[in-house]
Nucleic acid binder design. Structure first.
Lengths: 220, 220
DNA sequence: TGTACATCAGTGAACGCGCGTTCACTGATGTAC
DNA sequence: TGTACATCAGTGAACGCGCGTTCACTGATGTAC
């Protein structure tokens, strides 16, 4: 997986400092939001001067971009790990919920308010479809979605039949594609409102709504 | 509805300038995001000096707070108007979708990434429950949710029975509460991903997914 | 209708701040012979 | 093992910028008699 060539001490040190910078950046984002991220503030917390960070990142934008990519990566890894240990759709859902609750600002880094000008780096689309592939596998594994029987074939299913490029190369039938999208949006529906605090004040448990939405999906 | 006392010309002028400031603020937010909102930039665009704005708003925070409140208000009004013209759940859903698509940054002002420190003003909770009340009415009007028969009573329904303060005073049975929450989260699931651009690249029509999620809700 | 006064919108200068980023530099760490 | 050199992490000063906000002020608009 990694390079055969041995890491020099300097390289090891560089990697370590880069990691530490990111660590402080994440902390700062969690505290005051991504728009408040400041290189100088990070440097100060690390006990070094502002310009020193330019040895490690080309600038603020590159740092943020890397944090965003890391967040995508960590979600994809979470899904892959869950699937590898035999999780079904519900297992994936719970893994995702745990991932989101563990660090809400990381969730928002990926799924939150987009900055109108900013465009995500190219490699995240690859990571995103990795994630989607795991979900599609789980859907196709359901007794009902695996074969292409017509019981639940809806107008949207027909539409998906004609617009399935995003499931690139995946043999899932339309019913599975449909379920995967429902899965994805329902989870985000509960999570985004919950994490943004729109359920505080209402006294019910968002986790139970999350499960109810999931049950309703797998039972359809 | 309005004050009986006649508005003086000065008051009219003030109201007009305040509105113009907000207009520019909205435009700026739509262009560069809420975190980029700058009083000086607004003043410059209006052809006046920065400090002049302090005649109209106590500061940047008050302006943002008012924009947030306006956004809540406009959503609530959209729901009320739809309900008043006889819309059912699907009608409400489409009204909300239109509202969101008309101005994505306004949507994000209400439902987007929260700034960790910031707390929404107190009056928005009242506006939010206005909105919820309209949805609850529409759910209770469904043949199935109006009476409290037990066909679809789930564990989550039972939980809601004990945590229904948020539906304050509303006589809706648990099944209606449940459906209202599913309604709310499913719409946000599709909309938040769509508006954040997470479906670009996938070629399907998010509007059809939106409708499919809605159908699945009303058919259950 | 005209004058005296109060109200208030808007200005321009100024304050202090923190930001991202550049540059020439010092000093320590690693490399080659 | 020791010396000469190259690499490179980190510093401190500086640049220009735009920000929110305050303050004393001018000049126009409205009000009272």
């Amino acid at each position: 997986m990694t390079q055969a060539r041995t890491e020099t001490p300097r390289e090891r040190y560089r990697a370590q400092v880069r990691a530490e910078i990111k660590e402080h950046a994440r902390e700062q984002i969690a505290t005051a939001g991504a728009s408040a991220l400041s290189l100088n503030a990070i440097a100060k917390r690390m006990g070094m001067s502002g310009p020193a960070l330019y040895r490690y990142f080309a600038g603020r934008d590159e740092l943020i971009t890397e944090l965003v990519t890391d967040a995508y990566r960590s979600l994809a890894d979470t899904f892959r790990a869950a699937a590898a240990s035999g999780a079904d759709l519900a297992g994936l859902a719970h893994a995702m919920r745990a991932w989101a609750l563990a660090d809400p600002q990381r969730y928002f880094l990926v799924f939150g308010t987009p900055v109108p000008g900013y465009h995500a780096p190219a490699d995240v689309t690859g990571i995103a479809s990795e994630t989607m592939a795991v979900i599609l596998d789980a859907c196709a594994a359901l007794p009902h979605d695996g074969d292409g029987d017509g019981k639940g074939a809806t107008a949207f299913d027909a539409h998906l039949e004609g617009h399935r490029q995003w499931a690139d190369g995946h043999p899932a039938p339309p019913a599975a594609l449909h379920r995967a999208l429902s899965f994805w949006t329902r989870l985000h529906g509960v999570l985004s409102l919950e994490l943004a605090g729109h359920f505080t004040g209402m006294s019910f448990d968002p986790g139970l709504l999350f499960d109810a939405e999931l049950d309703d999906l797998t039972a359809r």
